[in-house]
């Protein structure tokens, strides 16, 4: 009997010391305690405010639901019908195409413009500071305010457009009322509003380019263009990648500025973006299920883009 007791006791202390040993190894510097203390609050907030809503809208997207009462009371399961309808809706196709247009315009016009300006006013000087401020000004305005200002500019009777057409004796023109022009008019505002922001990112990048590198290149006989393309641009590539990322995500979420410019998507919904489409058909018409389905599609698009971009483009930063 006694020998059995001793053996059990030895086994028990052995197990205890193994646990102690494990704790000692894993909790060096209080690592484990930190994890146990600090992860749960953050995880809880993230779950409650991010994961849960996303999951919920995933559920809603399979229902026909007006959102007035609990889903169990007034929701009706419709399977994939919301998604089917969205994918067949020409207005949604237009909204996706419009969003793509914002990306294209950003990449082809806005960012090169921002880069050109950044290159010309990156060096320190009081005049350059003034220009920086002037170019940055549109970005400071609230999106809704900018939209309202441009609504006046585009007014065909009293606005700047009207002044222009009258000056040249042309027939009056109403860009926001024209199906083919409404969204192009918005694109102009997008470029005007955000180029200053990207310019600032580039200026910050350019100012961190070491002067001795530029000087050395100059001594070696490099031309101005060569300095730009061979020295400056490669060195601020991380900033460029970042600004492309911002402009694509911004395009996917583009909303506030379009609202005051065109009422519910402009003529025949020709000026919808994905988010204004979501707002008009999901919120305004109280179809929470349908709106959630749009949101799910938007989320998938954003996630795929962010993942690919992080994996294949941003990752090069460390290389």
């Amino acid at each position: 009997m006694k020998s059995v007791d001793i053996a059990l006791e030895a086994q028990r202390t052995g197990r205890l010391s193994a646990v102690k040993e494990w704790l000692y190894r894993h909790n060096t510097g209080g690592r484990l305690s930190t994890l146990l203390l600090f992860i749960p609050p953050a995880l809880m907030v993230f779950t409650l405010l991010v994961i849960l809503p996303i999951a919920e809208s995933g559920v809603y997207s399979f229902y026909r639901w007006n959102g007035f009462t609990a889903l169990s009371d007034s929701g009706r399961w419709v399977g994939w019908r919301n998604f089917q309808f969205i994918l067949q809706d020409p207005v949604f196709h237009q909204a996706v195409w419009n969003t793509a247009k914002i990306v294209l315009i950003s990449l082809l016009i806005q960012l090169p413009l921002a880069m050109m300006l950044a290159l010309s006013i990156a060096s320190k000087g009081s005049l350059n500071t003034l220009f920086r401020l002037v170019y940055f000004l549109p970005f400071i305005l609230a999106d809704v305010v900018a939209g309202l200002i441009w609504r006046f500019i585009y007014d065909g009777n009293f606005g700047l457009v009207a002044a222009f057409t009258q000056l040249f004796g042309m027939e009056s023109f109403y860009p926001l009322a024209d199906r083919d022009w409404a969204f192009n008019a918005i694109l102009v505002v997008v470029v005007w509003k955000y180029f200053g922001y990207h310019m600032m990112i580039y200026i910050a990048g350019l100012q961190s380019v070491p002067n001795d590198l530029v000087e050395a290149a100059r001594l070696d006989g490099a031309s101005r263009l060569q300095i730009i393309f061979r020295i400056k641009l490669p060195l601020i590539m991380p900033a460029i990648r970042l600004s492309i990322f911002f402009s694509v995500i911004g395009a996917l979420q583009f909303f506030e500025m379009a609202m005051p410019l065109v009422t519910s998507g402009g003529p025949s919904g020709s000026a919808h973006t994905i988010v204004t489409y979501l707002y008009e058909f999901g919120i305004v018409r109280s179809r929470i299920g349908f709106g959630s389905a749009v949101a799910v599609l938007l989320f998938v698009m954003c996630a795929i883009f962010a993942f690919i971009y992080q994996r294949f483009v941003m990752a090069r930063n460390t290389a």
Partner: peptide, 8 residues
Amino acid sequence: QPGYRGMA
């Protein structure tokens, strides 16, 4: 009126 599609 001209431009009616842009008017509230």
